[in-house]
Design a binder for these strands. Structure first.
Lengths: 185, 185
DNA sequence: CGCACAACTTGACACTGACAAGATTGCCCG
DNA sequence: CGGGCAATCTTGTCAGTGTCAAGTTGTGCG
């Protein structure tokens, strides 16, 4: 079961890639550099991921799995949003890659199933919050909630909220923000 | 004033770059390819943009300028949001680059001033909507509105709303969405 | 007219992703 | 227990890229 030479090269390359992406973005990623970090030859990673796109696709699929797991445990819609933001903060590399389709093999089976799983978790949270409105209204509510959480998370990771958030936990700011949103203007 | 050989190589490279980014993302961008498209030697673009980062920084700065111009004309906060979404849809390459700091020279003067200008336009729209609440509450309102619009725009460009939006103008969907958001739950 | 400067070219180097072919190692099955 | 077999990894190579240095060409200005 366990590979022989390195122990688990696949995992090693993945974590090294996540490290690079989290600090310098996906553009700074180099397969040869990852190979060097793992102490293997330059072509070894290709055997596990096929190519650069394959590696990023694997990361995205893993990310959607983690996101689905986190979201499923939410007690209500606001909690789901908080968990979404927390996921983005704790797994910035996954998050960034997940929503950059230009880097991915979008028809990959593992990726599409993981993404569907995460989508189900979100829809469940929405239907719990508004059991009355099924149909198009519920779908719009889902997009609204998703947009708020996703926008906040994205702006957070792109360092556009640094001054406003300060040293507070971003999830607290987000929670305050949602309370503001669902009040009448 | 006008360059001699090409006419206006700077603009030609910029528009070619925007074209590539809009269809295949910033990762697919190659300075040598842009030079070929413009019919110049491989090192010609460097003279105008210094390097790859410089080109992307110039695109981001231009994008913030365009966004500021569009947002300034908004009549109220909802309109500002609609314009934000429309900007993302009409200038997807700019938008994508603007919010990927890993690709940019973040301390570039043109970039920071253009970004500040766009920020002012947003804050003005927020203060028009809520002239009573100045202070931290207004800042939170600004982030909330920004998050909704930015999240919707980002999900739209990453093709996560394709089925829901269908062939309707995305701005209409966004407008319906905001109406839903500012009602009490 | 000629001169300084901006715009562009040519050439080179290190690095990268991808592919092909060979070597090594652990595992399975007879 | 041992021999083949497949997975894992290596070595070598090729085209393409970004970037730098140095040379060329055209242009406007004094």
């Amino acid at each position: 079961m366990s590979p022989y030479h390195h122990g688990d090269l696949r995992r090693a390359v993945l974590t090294a890639a996540l490290d690079v992406i989290a600090t310098d973005g996906p553009a700074a990623l180099s397969l040869r550099d990852l190979a060097r970090r793992a102490g293997v030859s330059h072509a070894a990673p290709a055997h596990h991921f096929r190519d650069r796109t394959g590696l990023l696709t694997a990361i995205a699929a893993e990310g959607f799995g983690l996101l689905a797991a986190a979201t499923t445990e939410a007690v209500d819609l606001k909690d789901a949003g908080v968990r979404y933001v927390r996921f983005a903060r704790e797994h910035p590399a996954h998050f960034q890659v997940m929503f950059t389709p230009g880097l991915l093999r979008t028809d990959d089976l593992e990726l599409t199933t993981a993404r569907a799983l995460a989508g189900d978790a979100l829809r469940t949270a929405v239907s719990q919050a508004r059991p009355d409105a099924d149909g198009p209204d519920a779908r719009l509510t889902g997009i609204a909630a998703w947009s708020v959480a996703h926008g906040f998370a994205t702006l957070l990771l792109s360092h556009n909220l640094d001054e406003v958030v300060g040293d507070r936990p971003p999830e607290d700011v987000f929670e305050a923000l949602t309370g503001l949103l669902f009040r009448p203007a």
